[in-house]
Design a protein around this nucleic acid. Structure first.
Length: 563
RNA sequence: UGCCUCGUGGUGUAAUGGUAGCACAAGAGAUUCUGGAUCUCUUUGUCUAGGUUCGAAUCCUAGCGAGGCAGCCA
């Protein structure tokens, strides 16, 4: 019996391939990699990829590199490197990280291999498998579409060597020349039609500075980075499927020693009610439709973390959705279910009132305060109980009172009864309003026989609601989040920004039970009957800020909608 | 248009020639001092047409549909 019996081990077509390679002894060590370009923040789709690549390494006793694919100096920044590393570490560090490869704070960088790439370039030219091309970008495009050979294709090796050295030396302007692989302009796969390997960019690179003015293209850099690092299974998303023959061609052309890496592709994650592309996420940030990359409404890893999602919940989600080649659309409800499933077991319960309405218990002594016993987590008795103060004046949530309740409404209404959780059954005798007619106070009477835990507490009423003692309440800011988009697929049918949910953030001042004042990050709580909440970094010693990570399932809301 | 890939309930996935299963969602009920959780039950599926086979979701052929690629982006 192994540890894997308690934790389900995923199975999918890629892991099947790895398992087979392990069985046949194809490689000494399974070695995967996660290769982000540092040009944006990581999102939940990257989390899927991280969990796959690190998961494979973890399950097969291998290792996984994080490698910055930083071959385009005009787009990449150190800020993104830092955020990516923080996100990856957060996601995998408590996942049996000791045998993962992430045993250092610094990632690998494709840019560290630029010198080595240059040697490979020269080798390729010497083998007459690459040439320097003088065509403009537009001409190159057109010739590739038409399958026409470049007029510069048959330059001598000496001339190519000379020209490429002068490209490197900075003699030519951006776009003036490229180094292209010499493959087959009549190939049906356009990526085999003499693809560009190097372009000229007189731009400062975030790590190599001004050392280079020629930069490798993705295919060249990525393939050779994989090979250089000893990667065995190079796992990427479906859009690179047509690049695989080029990946193979490069390794063939350089006649690299075996075993060599192989590329496998899986479908990227799509989720309802959100957008996933970096381009769109960056627009949300720059257009200030959200408050930065880590806005809790964003499906970035940093946004999810700030909202209160745990790394283990994200990993469980990655496990739940599986790995295939089918371009699917996963229901946001799966993510939500994964969170509730974990937090229900792990989050301690507290009482908090979001939209307070005052309740005065007319038959309760003015100066009396009781300390009532409350269970911290009914799913985990080990975490014990706490005391909650109870007194004559309380707050309850406005949602828990209706003047003219519909049928099946179990909460408080004029003349009706409800149980205050851990306390008494009360009856609403009188409704007090202000001049505008708004209800400002409920005057209720207590059934002292009904005290929770007491000998005569057996009487049942249909509803139980949460409450907070007014004199003891601690005020806190609460931020309620809803889906960022109003439609399930904001990517289709027009500008995605026109589907923004204008009510996706609501800020309230809540009344909390005193025990919450002692909460510290990264603790998270269930506010009973409301949802799961985590402290936001905006919290100060004077004022807590709570983010609602996810609501509880609300079958009453569903019921109410029917009528 | 060319090339590549993929089609299993509403959604996401499993079954790798041998009883189509799981999860989410939806619906009904039980229970409940959270309208939470838990438990029970129910609805809904192999894209189509041929073929191979004792037997096909699985193998073959054709069709249909969907996605990706066709940057000096990754």
């Amino acid at each position: 019996m192994t540890a894997s019996t308690s934790t389900p081990v995923p199975s999918d077509f890629i892991r099947d391939i790895v398992a087979e390679d392990v069985r046949t002894g194809k490689y000494k060590l399974i070695h995967t990699r996660f290769p982000p370009e540092p040009n944006g923040y990581l999102h939940i789709g990257h989390a899927k990829s991280i969990c796959l690549n690190f998961g494979i390494a973890r399950e097969f006793g291998g290792i996984c590199n994080v490698r910055m694919d930083d071959t385009n100096p005009t787009k990449e920044e150190t800020e993104y490197v830092d955020s990516i590393m923080a996100d990856v570490r957060w996601l995998v560090d408590d996942w049996g990280a000791s045998h993962l490869a992430l045993n250092r704070n610094t990632p690998f960088y494709a840019s560290d291999y630029f010198d080595r790439f240059y040697e490979y370039d020269v080798e390729l030219v010497c083998k007459n498998k690459a040439f320097v091309c003088d065509m403009t970008p537009e001409e190159t495009d057109e010739y590739r579409r038409l399958g026409k050979e470049s007029p510069f294709r048959n330059r001598s090796i000496e001339e190519n060597l000379d020209l490429f050295a002068r490209m490197k030396a900075g003699e030519f302007a951006d776009g003036a020349r490229t180094l292209r692989a010499k493959i087959d302009m009549s190939a049906p796969n356009v990526w085999l039609r003499d693809p560009v390997l190097y372009r000229i960019r007189h731009a400062s690179h975030h790590r190599t500075g001004d050392k280079w003015c020629i930069y490798p293209m993705y295919d060249w850099a990525h393939t050779l980075s994989d090979y250089t690092e000893g990667i065995t299974h190079s796992v990427c998303t479906l859009e690179f499927e047509v690049h695989r023959p080029l990946y193979e061609w490069i390794l063939d052309a350089l006649e690299v020693s075996r075993p060599r890496p192989h590329q496998y592709e899986f479908a990227r994650l799509n989720l309802t009610y959100t957008v996933m592309s970096k381009r769109k996420l960056i627009q949300l940030v720059t257009d200030k439709l959200v408050n930065g990359w880590d806005d809790p409404r964003m499906l970035t890893i940093s946004g999810l973390r700030r909202r209160g999602v745990t790394a283990s919940a994200l990993r469980a989600f990655a496990y739940n959705i599986g790995i295939t080649k089918y371009p699917s659309m996963t229901d946001m409800a799966v993510l939500e279910h994964t969170m509730r499933n974990e937090f229900n077991r792990t989050a301690a319960r507290r009482l908090a009132v979001l939209r307070p309405i005052k309740v005065v218990l007319t038959n309760y002594p003015t100066d009396r305060v009781e300390e009532l016993n409350a269970v911290n987590n009914p799913e985990d008795r080990n975490v014990g109980t706490r005391k909650i103060p109870f007194s004559r004046e309380l707050f309850i949530d406005r949602d828990d009172f209706m003047e003219t309740p519909p049928p099946k409404y179990f909460r408080l209404s004029p003349g009706g009864e409800v149980r205050l959780k851990y306390a008494y059954i009360i009856k609403c005798d009188e409704v007090v309003r202000d001049n505008a007619g708004k209800v400002t106070e409920l005057r209720c009477s207590v059934d002292f026989e009904s005290k929770s835990g007491g000998a005569t507490s057996n009487r049942k009423v249909k509803g139980t609601i949460h409450w907070v003692s007014a004199a003891h309440a601690v005020e806190a800011e609460v931020r309620l989040y809803d889906r960022l988009f109003t439609v399930s697929e904001p990517d289709v049918g027009g500008d995605f920004k026109s589907f923004i949910n204008s009510h996706s953030l609501e800020v309230l001042t809540a009344k909390c039970e005193p025990a919450l004042a002692e909460a510290r990050p990264p603790e998270r709580y269930q506010f009973e009957r409301l949802g799961y909440f985590a402290l936001d970094p905006d919290s100060t010693p004077d004022k807590q800020v709570w983010n609602r990570t996810i609501t509880l399932k609300d079958t009453w809301a569903k019921e109410a909608k029917k009528t």
